[in-house]
């Protein structure tokens, strides 16, 4: 594996994404959302004003689960289905297709890291300035989980781009992936539990958690950010089954790793078979 070539491609991908202003747009979106949630989070209770990190982190996670997969899928699909004429020159160099894929995903991930750190960072500073730093440790944890989710969906976008090749089709598939995991999956699981006997339904519910990276991150964030008390009896049972909060989060992160690895291997396999 030529790490220098991977780094060179990743660096170029980062420069391209900085130039096309995606990073700036997403940083602004992230920052605005964090500040809006912090400021208007208690509006339904009749109060407005900045809330501290503890409340903001918990509310923000729900938003992250919607926005981050979409941003990652869009950026990934846009970049990985770039013009044929650009690809021919790169793919004729003495580097493997795997190295090109890893470089591109690396650069895109770096771009998302920059956008996330900028958006969440500036908003975090505002919150710290307004409300103090109590509960601030939860905030980097939230950022880390957001980035893990971004990496998963970047790899899914790579698989979508490689299997479709053409930009409009790849966008269509990427949007389907987003709808499926963010909106439909939970409905399907709930529907499934109605059809199954109670004991099987419980096992089905547990296993189905690992079939959706959004669900994995949601549960990991709930355990890591809020502890098991927010979870109710089912969550407590899950934590007991997995051996406590720490091992549970580790187990869920392991599942996320598989969600990175499997789409990446599929994308690689499809790219290797492609005519450029």
């Amino acid at each position: 594996m030529d790490l220098k070539a991977i780094r060179t491609i990743a660096r170029l991908e980062l420069i391209i994404n900085i130039r096309n202003r995606w990073i700036l747009v997403f940083a602004l979106v992230f920052g605005a959302l964090v500040l809006a949630i912090s400021y208007f989070g208690l509006a339904t209770a009749g109060a407005v004003g900045f809330q501290g990190f503890a409340r903001t982190s918990a509310s923000l996670m729900n938003l992250v689960l919607y926005v981050v997969p979409l941003v990652s899928l869009l950026m990934g699909t846009l970049s990985l289905t770039s013009d044929k004429s650009t690809g021919e020159m790169v793919f004729s160099q003495p580097i493997t297709r795997t190295e090109i894929l890893l470089g591109k995903i690396g650069g895109l991930f770096a771009a998302i890291v920059v956008a996330t750190l900028l958006g969440f960072g500036v908003a975090g500073l505002v919150i710290a300035f307004k409300t103090g730093t109590e509960g601030a440790l939860r905030y980097p944890l939230l950022v880390a989980l957001s980035l893990a989710l971004a990496l998963v969906f970047l790899c899914l976008s790579a698989a979508a781009a490689m299997v479709c090749r053409r930009k409009p089709m790849a966008f269509g598939l990427a949007l389907f992936v987003w709808f499926f995991y963010v909106l439909f999956y939970d409905l399907l699981v709930i529907g499934g539990t109605f059809l199954l006997p109670e004991r099987t339904a419980n096992i089905f519910l547990f296993v189905s958690l690992f079939g959706n990276p959004v669900g994995v991150v949601r549960v990991a964030s709930l355990i890591a950010l809020n502890g098991q008390e927010i979870f109710g009896p089912a969550g407590a049972a899950l934590i007991r089954f997995l051996g406590g909060s720490g091992p549970s989060v580790a187990f869920l992160l392991g599942a996320l790793f598989l969600w990175v690895l499997v789409p990446l291997l599929l994308a690689r396999r499809w790219l290797e078979r492609q005519d450029i």
Partner: peptide, 12 residues
């Protein structure tokens, strides 16, 4: 190799 239509990222 030089392809028939060499292309490069436009922002570079």
């Amino acid at each position: 190799y030089l392809p028939q239509r060499a292309g490069f990222p436009e922002s570079l």
